[in-house]
């Protein structure tokens, strides 16, 4: 480990999803704010325990939906009724039923784009490196390791008391990570 790199935070390992859940809850309740949990699989209730605010993705999807729907309507209205009007099957130039399939498809397409790319952007993904990787046992996170991270930028963070606090929660292999 390169000691010259800035301290990122303190990482502790827990031996079960339940222990991690309780530790996350206790850490947040103790007043720590910059806390994260890592586990091999989603743990029910972990969002609530970490007090993670609700996702903003739905609003992005709503934006995508309106952009797609209104865009598709405008596109068809402009092309079929204004810029290059052609009579088709005796229908009016501005024939709303005929526009519905494209409106539907573009609404769904842009909603899906907003959901996927919005989720990636809000999560800061793709991301190939994280300071927690420097923990000596962090490779277990894809198998059977449950880790809690308290970042050094947290106002309550202190190298000694945070370590004691995490040990008190039942954390093992408590290490400072840099990077």
């Amino acid at each position: 480990m390169d000691k010259t790199e800035a301290l990122y935070g303190m990482v502790a390992e827990f031996d079960s999803p339940g222990a991690l859940l309780h530790a996350a809850e206790a850490t947040r309740n103790a007043g720590y704010e910059r806390v994260d949990a890592c586990s091999p699989f989603p743990i029910h209730g972990i969002d609530k325990a970490l007090k993670i605010p609700g996702s903003k993705v739905p609003w992005l999807v709503l934006g995508g939906a309106f952009t797609g729907g209104i865009g598709a309507l405008a596109l068809q209205w402009w092309t079929s009724a204004i810029d290059y009007p052609i009579k088709i099957a005796g229908k009016p130039y501005l024939s709303l039923p005929a526009f519905v399939p494209v409106i539907f498809e573009l609404t769904v397409l842009l909603s899906a784009f907003a959901a996927v790319f919005g989720m990636l952007a809000l999560n800061g993904l793709p991301r190939l490196y994280h300071p927690a990787f420097n923990h000596s046992r962090f490779h277990k996170v894809t198998d059977d390791g449950f880790f809690l991270i308290i970042e050094s930028e947290d106002p309550m963070f202190s190298r000694s008391t945070t370590r004691e606090f995490m040990a008190g929660l039942g954390g093992t292999h408590i290490e400072e990570v840099r990077g």
Partner: peptide, 12 residues
């Protein structure tokens, strides 16, 4: 419902 209406409306 729309699929039913749409095909009939288009086919006329």
């Amino acid at each position: 419902a729309f699929s039913q209406f749409f095909l009939i409306w288009y086919g006329n």
